[in-house]
Design a protein around this nucleic acid. Sequence first.
DNA 1: TAGGCCATCTGGTCCT
DNA 2: AGGACCAGATGGCCTA
Length: 211
Amino acid sequence: MCSSVEDVYYSFAAPVTDDEDSLGSLHLSSSPSSLGQPSSPAEIQDQAIADPQEKKRRRSRCKNDATLQVVKRNRRVKANDRERNRMHNLNDALDELRRVLPAFPDDTKLTKIETLRFAHNYIWALSETIRLADQCLEKQRETSMVLSGLKCGADIRSPASDSCSWMSSASSSPSPSYCPSNPSSPATSEDYGFVQADGLYNYQSFVNSIY
DNA sequence: TAGGCCATCTGGTCCT
DNA sequence: AGGACCAGATGGCCTA
């Protein structure tokens, strides 16, 4: 057990990787003397103490510090691994999102921020399309009622309108913080400048293809 | 070569 | 205590 601790300590003390190097500098910055590690010639000389008990105490303290650092290092490595996986999952989700979005003609891969902005605008465009379709249906119904001589058209709600009312309300303000004033644009700030034009173009061509 | 994008590491904070 | 999440730092790669 003691030998394994020593092995770990020596392997840790040896300059191996950038990570361990940075960790070493990190620990140096956190007052190594307070950790009991000999960092100065005076402290190293302190180790040449005649008292065997004191010698023993110091040695075990060093081992404890070494194991502590190894434990910290292992925790860091595990945390790095988790963080890497987390970012990979995030990137996978972004790829999924890219796949369901309309592709650009030049087939260039959208960056992360472009993907998110375009998705936002695309959802808005689809919602707007549904809203316009609802309006169109409503008008057709009213027209047919007028033509047939009925007068209760105003009281009749279309099932489609009801079933999609959340969409209509959502589309009239799909994201209040983004689209408070201008219904022709899902975004108000220059944050959405890039996709705004493209989103609008896609929306209009989309609507044109329907009507 | 500057600037943009990205991956990774890292320490801090919050939550379970 | 350990994991998730976050933001800052850093370095590599690519493009105009």
